[in-house]
C-alpha cells in the first residue's frame, strides 16, 4: 500500500509524491506541507517567471554576486549538458521563448526571434564570487524540473523516506517499492487519458518530451516551448511533420530531463556513446504510425 500526497501546483504543472514507506495520516499531512514549501521555495528562487528570482536577476542585470552553492551547481550542470549534447541542449533560449510570447503573462504575442543561440560556455561565467551573463537569457525549462525532482528526492531521503515516487508534471524519480521496481505508464502524446505502454523505474529518473504539449497558434503560425537549437530560423511547426513522444530513463531525473528535449531535436545515434556511458535509455513514439521504438533495457 502507498499513500499519494495531495497534488501540488508548481513550475506551471502538477506534482505528485507517492510514498511507499509505512506512515500515518498525520505524517503524510506534515510531509505534504513540507513538500509544498520545498517546491515553492525553488520556484521563487529560480523561475524566470518570478520577477525577483535569482534567474530573473541574472537575466536582467547580467550578474549574481556571491552565489550560493546550489545556484553554482545548477548552472554548471547546464554547461555540462551543453557540452555533452554538442550544443543541442542550451539553457540560453530565454530570448527565443520570450519572442514567441512564452512570457510571465503567457501573452503569446510573438516578436522577432534572435537568429542565434549564445554559448553558455562563453556567455555564462561561474565562480564562487559571482555569476555573470553576457549574452542571451537563461531558461531552466530544459532541465530545471528534473533538477528539482532530484533535490526533492534528497529532501525525502533526509527525512527518512526510502521508498517513494516523485512525479513532477510527468517527469519522475522513483526509488522502489521495498526494492521492487515501480510500474509507470507512458502517456500518449495526443490522445487524452490514454497510455501506450507500461514500464518500471527502480532508482531511476524519467522524463518525457513531445512536440504536442505547450503549443499555441498565432496568425496561422504554430509555436511551441520546444526550441530547435540546431536551426535558429526554424519555426516550431517545422519541428516535425509527424508528432512524436520521447521517453527517457536515466540514473537521475535531471539527466533524463535534459536528454528528453535533446532527443526530440537530434538523432539518438549521434549521442549513442555518451548515452550508453551515462546509462540513459529512451523510447520514441510516432503518433502517426503508432510505433514505439526503444533502446535496449528501456
Amino acid at each position: 500500500m502507498s499513500i499519494v500526497l495531495p497534488p501540488l501546483s508548481a513550475l506551471g504543472t502538477v506534482w505528485y509524491v507517492e510514498l511507499f514507506d509505512s506512515l500515518n495520516q498525520e505524517k503524510a499531512d506534515e510531509t505534504s506541507g513540507l513538500v509544498r514549501l520545498f517546491l515553492t521555495d525553488f520556484e521563487e528562487k529560480y523561475s524566470r517567471f518570478k520577477p525577483h528570482s535569482l534567474i530573473s536577476t541574472l537575466n536582467n542585470t547580467g550578474a549574481l554576486i556571491n552565489p550560493d552553492q546550489t545556484t553554482i551547481a545548477l548552472l554548471t550542470l547546464a554547461q555540462k549538458f551543453y557540452r555533452d549534447t554538442g550544443g543541442i541542449f542550451n539553457p540560453l533560449i530565454g530570448e527565443h521563448l520570450l519572442a514567441r510570447g512564452y512570457d510571465t503573462n503567457y501573452s503569446f504575442t510573438p516578436k522577432t526571434e534572435p537568429s542565434d543561440f549564445p554559448s553558455p560556455l562563453t556567455a555564462l561565467s561561474i565562480s564562487r564570487e559571482s555569476i555573470k551573463l553576457t549574452a542571451g537569457q537563461i531558461d531552466l525549462g530544459g532541465y530545471g524540473k528534473g533538477w528539482l525532482i532530484d533535490q526533492l528526492s534528497l529532501f525525502l531521503r533526509d527525512r527518512g523516506f526510502q521508498y517513494f515516487l516523485i512525479n513532477g508534471g510527468g517527469d519522475m524519480y522513483a526509488t522502489s517499492n521495498y526494492d521492487e521496481p515501480i510500474p509507470i505508464y507512458l502517456e500518449h502524446p495526443t490522445l487524452p487519458n490514454t497510455y501506450i505502454a507500461e514500464t518500471t523505474l527502480k532508482n531511476q529518473g524519467f522524463a518525457a518530451s513531445s512536440t504536442e504539449k505547450r503549443r499555441w497558434q498565432v496568425a496561422g503560425k504554430k509555436y511551441s516551448h520546444i526550441v530547435d537549437t540546431t536551426n535558429p530560423t526554424k519555426n516550431s511547426s517545422d519541428l516535425n511533420n509527424d508528432t512524436f513522444g520521447i521517453y527517457v530513463k536515466a540514473p537521475l531525473a535531471v539527466t533524463a530531463d535534459a536528454w528528453s528535449t535533446t532527443l526530440l531535436i537530434s538523432k539518438p545515434e549521434t549521442h549513442q556513446a555518451l548515452l550508453t556511458q551515462e546509462q540513459v535509455t529512451h523510447a520514441t513514439f510516432n503518433v502517426q504510425s503508432g510505433t514505439l521504438i526503444s533502446s535496449p533495457n528501456f
Binding site: 510527468g170 500518449h188 505502454a197 518525457a208
Partner: peptide
C-alpha cells in the same frame, strides 16, 4: 501492447510531456 484508459491508473504513475496547468 496496452491500450487502457488512464482513468484506471493513478496519475502519480503517468509519465509524459509536461502537463499544463
Amino acid at each position: 501492447v496496452i491500450g487502457k484508459p488512464l482513468s484506471e491508473i493513478s496519475l502519480s504513475r503517468v509519465g509524459g510531456a509536461s502537463l499544463t496547468t
